[in-house]
Design a protein around this nucleic acid. Sequence first.
DNA 1: ATATATTTTTAGACAAGTCTAAAAATTATC
DNA 2: GATAATTTTTAGACTTGTCTAAAAATATAT
Lengths: 219, 219
Amino acid sequence: MLTTLTEENYLKAIYHISQTSKKGVSTNAIAKKIDAKASSVTDMLKKLADKNLITYIKYKGVNLTEKGRLTAVDIIRKHRLWEVFLVDKLNFSWDEVHDVAEQLEHIKSPKLINELDALLDFPTHDPHGDPIPDKNGQIQRTDKIVLSQASVGETYTCVGVIDSSSDFLKYLDKHQIGLGSKIHVIEKEDFDQSMSLEINSKTIVMSKSITNNLFVKKL
Amino acid sequence: MLTTLTEENYLKAIYHISQTSKKGVSTNAIAKKIDAKASSVTDMLKKLADKNLITYIKYKGVNLTEKGRLTAVDIIRKHRLWEVFLVDKLNFSWDEVHDVAEQLEHIKSPKLINELDALLDFPTHDPHGDPIPDKNGQIQRTDKIVLSQASVGETYTCVGVIDSSSDFLKYLDKHQIGLGSKIHVIEKEDFDQSMSLEINSKTIVMSKSITNNLFVKKL
DNA sequence: ATATATTTTTAGACAAGTCTAAAAATTATC
DNA sequence: GATAATTTTTAGACTTGTCTAAAAATATAT
């Protein structure tokens, strides 16, 4: 039973939301992510439940079935592989890839994606540091933390971003921060939780809204 | 005003049909190519005419406007560039590329297609020998002829195929015929117009239905 | 040139996915 | 625990692209 583009987008949205909150995913949360009305979401949830892609109990939110999870992860695999392709082979910068990858992720051809994987030398992470699921839907878990939770005095490597909006990525580019950048935490301000950091031998102060969007790993 | 995937497929069909018959394109011909009913075609023609992509006079068939032609040719450019990508970079054979390219041709991103063009080193022809339109919609005209019209005693190079169905391409592969193959016309049978040809130092007899599908150029 | 056959268009219906407005269920508040 | 606020679902309608069946226009044949 093949999935439509719209169904795939719903599954992806449900998957992403369920990553950040362990309980069932609410209709409103999906509506917000998809940019649709809650009534439209309800309609689609019925359809996805009919196809055994989610478990759906009225008024109780939804969860992906194993079939649904595999479908969602497969789309994410394709999305991230295409992002690597765009950056590594077509000279896109990391803030330009998202919209195009959103289109490319829906192309249906197993051979295409396997060959692309090989062409790119089987990458494990996309240009924003997110792990690329393997063919079987396995995702490598990392021990990354959010920069805002880093400890004063320690040094970290930047391994990913949460918000991959163009504006945020451009901010990082401006300060020459990218995946692999070394970040030393000098001080953490109790009042507003802003942080003083040493990056590229320069001291930089970041507000909580910035440090909440960067993933780092202890060196 | 952006075009939908369906509109693009209609424009492409109209373009291709208009290449093989100089007069206006009929509703039935489009229906056949698109694999839809004539009534559906009529509906779409009204929409395309409203968007100034075709000129449409009831019962009289259609023609592409300049805007429509440019849109169609742009899709064809993308289709053929993707085909080159699939064969050159992803190890597809020339009989496997069509369906995937049909999907990829609708991806909307000027940067994507320009960079792809560069990655592939600005190819002029796709894997079936068809010319790739340039950015401005210009198509290089070639002096190719159909093999069935070739002259006895002359030698030709294979430069393209008409029918790029998987079956036909596999037939060619089996006889080790590809773009660039040398074909010497030994004899032409008056009765059924089959031809005796020397290819790869072997003599091979081809029926008219085969020779009608191969483009050649005099050496 | 009239009758027949073919092509094309119209009219009305359907499926997918969306919306608004209103009703029902759940959650929060006092 | 009753009432208010929020969330979710239902009901009905709209759009895109499709279909079938019937009507209209064009082309063909005698």
